[in-house]
Nucleic acid binder design. Structure first.
Lengths: 219, 219
DNA sequence: CGCACGATTATACGCGCGTATAACAGTCGG
DNA sequence: CCGACTGTTATACGCGCGTATAATCGTGCG
């Protein structure tokens, strides 16, 4: 008895595309780029391999879409973090930083996924543009938040500060995700907040009351 | 006329191994992990594919060796940087940081190479140990340099500072390599030195006289 | 000097990849 | 209610991959 024909199920274009993109991201996050074959992606998404080429011109186009979705998702997470919180500039900055250093952003799968596309980012101008836009958007949000702080600043100072804070957060994001056992839970956030405080000459640790990670800690 | 047999050339085991490792690193740096096939590696190294399996049990073992060599090389570069310079703690720290934010360490190929192995680092305990050791060695060097600074510190303070500085340098390394056009030449070093200065409460920019990047700049 | 051994090359195998294409199955306007 | 349309599946093709193995070549030892 050979396997019966897969049952025919019709879905919207959007749900199929997102399913394929999610499947791709999951597989790359779990097993690196080489694990995301068209057959594995199709199986994960619950379709047959042929369907991929019905929604994407090639596997490469699906890969690009997956990278774009990753970057958009991460910047969206940051934007969400400064939506709800109180109006204080320090609170908003602290919330923004903390959101980047906590799951689901701080996640080994996300780092592996991000790293897996790195060489394509460098060789494909389209993906390079996505990366650059995403990086600059994040940095710009950071810079805008920094500029709202009640400080006297010299011209050009906030740009350099934003670059440094961005780099600091990126580095903590990578190492905190890859070596989770090396840090206490929440320690990455504390380190990030205090280092950014030092760079900017402020004190963010006094403005963490509304952060979910700081219920009653840091005596 | 079919191609003549490749001329038989005998080499030492060490030169063959390093040639194969270098070829692997170059190919991954240029085209990502998928570009480093046994055939491409062999051609780059000037041998035939079969020879790879004479010196390495499998392609995976060669990959691991290439990753180890990458990590060792980068930490060696840092150690070199603090060898020659004057005895001042600030000078040594500044030289160490600058060495990480300047070619050949600051290099897109190196970042792509590093990123290309990331998922293997996570899944292979052997590589994970290499990564962790390399990361902790770098951080430890940093921490030791920080501890020599003439400052009054609280217990546990330098560990957190070293983590933050390490993350900052890592982040600048990645973004500075991937988006070289976004920064002026040497700007990444300046930003790194000033941000580390802020984190540690010192001033490294006054101790850059012997750095090759600071001939007569930063007015 | 010759021969045994190790370094190196040559060839082949099987597998899984991305892709192309044809068959099939629901859906919807007439 | 039927035919055109399109989402979906099934099957096949060719290529390049990592690997295995046999043939070849140089070198050093007895």
């Amino acid at each position: 008895m050979q396997p019966a024909r897969r049952l025919y199920r019709r879905e919207s274009e959007e749900s199929r595309r997102t399913a394929l993109i999610s499947a791709t991201q999951e597989l790359v996050a779990e097993g690196g780029p080489e694990a995301a074959t068209v057959r594995a992606i199709a199986e994960r998404a619950g379709v047959t391999p042929g369907l991929i080429r019905h929604y994407f011109q090639s596997k490469d186009e699906l890969s690009r879409a997956a990278y774009r979705a990753l970057m958009d998702g991460m910047t969206a997470k940051g934007a969400d973090a400064i939506e709800g919180v109180g109006a204080g500039p320090e609170e908003r900055l602290a919330a923004f930083i903390a959101a980047s250093l906590r799951p689901p952003v701080l996640d080994a799968g996300a780092v592996v996924l991000w790293a897996g596309y790195m060489h394509k980012v460098r060789s494909d101008p389209d993906l390079m543009a996505v990366h650059e836009a995403s990086y600059l958007a994040y940095r710009d949000t950071l810079q805008k938040l920094i500029e709202t702080l009640p400080r006297a600043v010299k011209p050009g100072q906030t740009r350099v500060e934003a670059i440094a804070c961005n780099a600091l957060i990126d580095g903590l994001w990578v190492e905190g995700s890859l070596l989770p056992g090396t840090f206490e839970p929440g320690e990455v956030i504390t380190i990030g907040l205090s280092a950014v405080s030092a760079i900017l000459g402020i004190n963010l640790l006094d403005h963490t009351a509304m952060l979910p990670d700081f219920g009653k800690t840091t005596p």
